[in-house]
């Protein structure tokens, strides 16, 4: 990768500066999971899903919000990510789609206000670096990218750190990896093992399913219906 491009990606590789309170983490994971689901149903690009997740996390880290209205942030994050990254001939998303997706829980005014609020938080710059931006022609390990995007244990790492770990996740030779990368790799493995073990004792399978990419389970936020984007 040329230096210019790498520097630029790093500049826009946002590190969450504020800590998200513990009680919000579970809500956040549910929200990100729901974003995945909407993304899968509508065949969104992986970058779009990552971007929507970044926007939601940023917002949650900066504003104190009520967990009842967290889906408002989720849907507006998806709309902004779709506008920024999706081919408009393939998919479009407008305010009414957001209202419908949330089953009219929010008015179009609330959606529009949230869009303004989120855009001013990011200073009208939606061009934030995602993990897949670092890929340079090699095959993208979508399952792992989604896994670290979802799991709050990896919330405070920068995308380039996660990229290095994912890229080397299956490699046999770890001698020339940095300590940090090795640490993240072992955390990912531990997390996966833990989830696989828990699975036997009948706990929710959501995360494991993402790893296996069997398709995602229905959201807990509300029963999902395919949205007409």
């Amino acid at each position: 990768m040329d230096l210019d491009r790498y520097n630029y990606l790093q500049k826009r590789d946002i590190k969450l500066a504020q800590i998200i309170p513990d009680q919000m983490l579970q809500v956040m994971e549910m929200l990100i999971h729901w974003i995945f689901q909407v993304g899968e149903q509508n065949n969104l690009e992986i970058k779009t899903i990552e971007l929507a997740a970044i926007l939601s996390k940023l917002y949650l880290s900066k504003q104190l919000i009520d967990s009842d209205t967290v889906d408002l942030i989720g849907i507006v994050s998806i709309m902004i990510a779709v506008k920024f990254n999706e081919c408009q001939n393939k998919i479009q998303m407008n305010i009414q789609d957001c209202v419908n997706q949330c089953q009219s829980k929010y008015s179009s005014k609330e959606i529009t206000d949230m869009e303004m609020s989120l855009l001013s938080l990011i200073e009208y710059d939606a061009n934030m670096t995602t993990i897949t931006d670092y890929y340079d022609g090699e095959a993208v390990q979508i399952d792992l990218v989604l896994f670290v995007t979802l799991d709050s244990e990896f919330l405070y790492f920068q995308k380039y750190e996660l990229y290095e770990a994912i890229r080397n996740f299956y490699s046999k030779d770890t001698s020339n990896l940095s300590e940090n990368t090795k640490n993240i790799i072992s955390r990912i493995s531990a997390k996966i093992n833990q989830l696989t073990a828990n699975d036997v004792s009948n706990t929710p399978k959501i995360k494991k399913k993402i790893i296996k990419k069997k398709g995602l389970r229905r959201s807990k936020i509300y029963s999902s219906q395919s949205i007409t984007l």
Binding site: M79, K83, F84, N94, E115
Partner: peptide, 16 residues
């Protein structure tokens, strides 16, 4: 168009 919110062209220009 109120139904679109912030126009795509505007969002892309300010972002890039």
């Amino acid at each position: 168009d109120v139904s679109v919110g912030v126009p795509i062209t505007a969002l892309r220009e300010t972002s890039l």
